[in-house]
Design a protein around this nucleic acid. Structure first.
Length: 527
RNA sequence: GGCCCCAUCGUCUAGUUAGGUCUAGGACAUCGGAUUUUCAUUCCGGUAACAGGGGUUCAAAUCCCCUUGGGGUCACCA
């Protein structure tokens, strides 16, 4: 038997990070078994622009490298893969259920049903369907339908049954059918509802394993009943716990994004995002893009490998040691058996740690190719194909070394890209290390003179020069190094000072020193 | 509220199916120390958990029951 799994998103315009984890598990299980992974679009209820709403979802899959064997854009032998185009199959199945008596026309008005529901709730009774329409003879039911009396089609729940599901992750779960109302499977216009369409399609697409989020567990008995009524082979089930928001056990939700902003565990991610997104013209506060969405991580400069590694470790582990897994590793080693039963909260810290690992594993060329588009988007470089530009950026990436965790981190070294008058100054530290110390300006002025005389403006000679300068002046490195760094980079900390000076170049260093000394002078004069 | 699910360090988890080798292991975070004339990295070390109560057993994180807590779901949404 070929394993066939599916992910069935409804086109919402974005890909949820938790949904992505579920999709990853389904994909992994298919690939692990040399099976097929199918993408089906559950758009029975959506009237919107499908292209626009589906694009971000497909992009997320493509970005992470999760391919699909059948589905949108690639087609396949079981198409179409949009539920909105599969009406004929639902009609057929519906007719079958109606004639076999597994389903019935319900002429009761929605208001009546609602009233009964409320009454049951008030009396603390379990609500089950009234089934008054079932008292109609077949001919009568037919006649009323023909007369145009509105009805919905409900599945007739066998109330005496106890239904057992053997879930790959939950184990044995039992439901009492006597407690279930008859679910509507088709509206008055014949359009199918989720539970019904899913069952028809899972069967038609020959899905062997339904791997989905655990919130669907309560839908499963209905779907099993439907499969049986239709004479289908019931697929195997695996209900995966949902992904919780950091530091909580609550399902992560797009709607709660404002709440997450004040969540201390989430802080680091938001800060990183705000910092990067503001540079590339995305309003980080608009919530158009948030850490709930896969696209967020791409825009901030995460690697697919980093995101994938973080996701797979959410609710799954190989053993008591292994943390780092490539997609190929996961594919080889993933089993449903080792999926954990309880929900896991996304951990931004750990995610960033995985990301750092995969970033450090990249070759210089790969890092360069990753950073270039970011610099271009931020207008920090003009032509990302220019050789001189590339060489410069490559040197800066090399200098940044481990500081580069996500591609967006390259913006932290913006001093190498901005014009002198655009350089932002860390005012507090500038005061402390340049303006305030009695001798600082004098020392810097003298140092400026020495630097101007340096012929070979390179790391080694510069290092030697600074070294002898401190010896000669009988000062500590701490008296001059930070001050010099502040003047030429605007920052109190950063990568190796001498390499930074070399990369900036003599002219730039001298210009920025002049500017900073002038600034310090005026600040001191004004008190 | 009904039904269903879940419960090990702050977090992600190993260990639960086949009870003993678990004075509970790893990772992230955190705290110390070393390296680095800054920052980051790297390396060493530390703090830190079986929700509670009853059973069963020679022996329980592991099996059973109860309690508590958390969560999901109860649509003519998916």
């Amino acid at each position: 038997m070929t394993v066939r799994t599916r992910f069935a998103p409804s086109p919402t315009g974005y890909m949820h990070i938790g949904g992505m984890r579920t999709a990853l598990f389904a994909w992994l299980w298919a690939r692990h078994n040399n099976g097929q992974f199918i993408l089906r679009i559950d758009d029975t209820d959506e009237q919107r622009n499908i292209g626009e709403a589906l694009g971000p979802i497909l992009n997320a899959f493509r970005w992470l490298g999760l391919d699909w064997d059948e589905g949108p854009e690639v087609g396949g032998p079981h198409g179409p893969y949009f539920q909105s185009q599969r009406r004929v199959f639902y009609d057929e199945a519906l007719a079958k259920l109606l004639t076999s008596g597994h389903a019935y026309r319900d002429f009761e008005s929605p208001e009546d049903t609602q009233t009964q529901r409320e009454a049951a709730e008030k009396e603390k009774r379990v609500y089950v369907s009234s089934r008054v329409s079932l008292e109609l003879s077949a001919a009568e039911s037919e006649r009323q339908a023909a007369d145009g009396k509105p009805f919905v089609v409900r599945l007739l729940i066998p109330r005496s049954q106890k239904l057992v599901i053997n879930d790959h992750i939950r184990g044995r779960v039992e439901f009492d059918c006597g407690l279930m109302p008859d679910p509507v499977i088709a509206r008055n216009d014949g359009s199918p509802l989720y539970n019904f369409a899913t069952v028809v399609d899972d069967a038609a697409l020959e899905i062997t394993h339904v791997i989905r989020a655990e919130e669907h567990l309560s839908n499963t008995p209905i779907q099993v009943l439907l499969h049986r009524a239709l004479g289908n082979k019931t697929p195997e089930w695996a209900h995966i716990p949902y992904v919780a928001a950091p530091g909580t056990k609550e399902k992560m939700s797009k709607r709660k994004i404002d709440k997450y902003r004040t969540n201390p565990q989430f802080q680091k991610l938001f800060e990183l995002g705000d910092q990067v997104l503001s540079r590339i013209g995305i309003d980080a506060n608009s919530n158009e893009l948030s850490p709930v969405m896969v696209a967020y991580y791409r825009e901030v400069g995460f690697l697919p490998a980093g995101v994938l590694n973080a996701l797979v470790r959410l609710g799954w582990s190989l053993d008591d040691q292994t943390e780092i897994l490539s997609l190929a590793d996961m594919m080889r080693k993933f089993t449903l058996e080792r999926v954990i039963r309880s929900p896991a909260g996304l951990d931004p810290d750990k995610m960033l740690s995985f990301q750092s690992h995969w970033m450090h594993a990249l070759s210089p060329r790969e890092k360069l190719d990753g950073c270039l588009p970011f610099l271009k988007k931020a207008r920090l470089i003009d032509d990302e194909n220019d050789h001189a530009t590339q060489a410069k950026v490559a040197s800066i990436i090399d200098l940044a070394a481990d500081r580069l965790r996500v591609f967006g981190d390259i913006f932290q070294l913006d001093e190498f890209f901005v014009a002198d008058d655009q350089l932002k100054m860390d005012d507090k530290n500038f005061q402390k290390r340049v303006v305030k110390p009695e001798t600082a300006i004098g020392l810097l002025t003298e140092l400026r003179g020495r630097l101007a005389d340096v012929f070979n403006f390179a790391t080694e000679p510069l290092h030697d020069l600074l070294q002898s300068f401190t010896t000669e002046k009988k000062i500590k490195a701490g008296d001059i190094f930070p001050a010099l760094r502040l003047c030429v980079t605007g920052k109190a900390q950063g990568p190796d000072l001498f390499r930074s000076l070399e990369l900036l170049g003599k002219d730039c260093v001298l210009r920025r020193l002049d500017r900073a000394i002038g600034l310090a002078d005026s600040m001191r004069a004004s008190g």
